[in-house]
Design a protein around this nucleic acid. Structure first.
Length: 137
DNA sequence: GTTCTCACA
DNA sequence: TGTGAGAA
């Protein structure tokens, strides 16, 4: 019960976090290797703080939104308590706006690809029917 | 259980 | 952007 006097002193094992966020422990080490998280160590083993956990949450959200780990890294590192994160928020806003446009363009490309293939299906079916009716004569 | 490194897609 | 294997 009193194992964690303060929430801020809580720690998580790599397994706890990976389970909670449904990512592999391998992935967490990978993020660390890329500099996105820096858990404390007890000897060799990683101890994740609530702040590390919050960072992970932001990393995973960034991924869902389609940002690369490098982009996420850049945004994450912009946080500074000095401005209450204002600089980070500005950067995030800018990133979001850009990503919205990127995704819209991708959607157009996908829609075009689907349209092409739907038409292709119609044409192919016609060709196949033609070939089969010739063969049966 | 966790660590690291190497190879691999 | 990760995974698998193997050794420690």
């Amino acid at each position: 019960m009193e194992t964690h006097p303060k929430d801020s002193n809580r720690t998580y094992s790599i397994r706890q976090l990976s389970k909670e966020f449904d990512v592999t422990a391998r992935a967490l080490r990978f993020y660390e290797d890329k500099g996105l998280i820096s858990p404390q160590r007890k000897g060799q083993t990683r101890l994740y703080s609530p702040r590390d956990r919050a960072r992970l949450q932001l990393i995973l959200r960034g991924k869902r939104l389609g940002f690369s780990l490098v982009e996420i890294h850049e945004i994450l590192d912009l946080y500074t308590p000095k401005d209450h994160g204002a600089a980070q928020m500005r950067a995030t806003l800018h990133k979001y706006r850009g990503q919205i446009e990127t995704l819209k363009r991708q959607r157009e490309d996908i829609d075009a690809a689907i349209k092409d293939m739907v038409e292709g299906c119609v044409w192919l079916e016609g060709q196949i029917n033609e070939l089969e009716s010739e063969t049966s004569n």
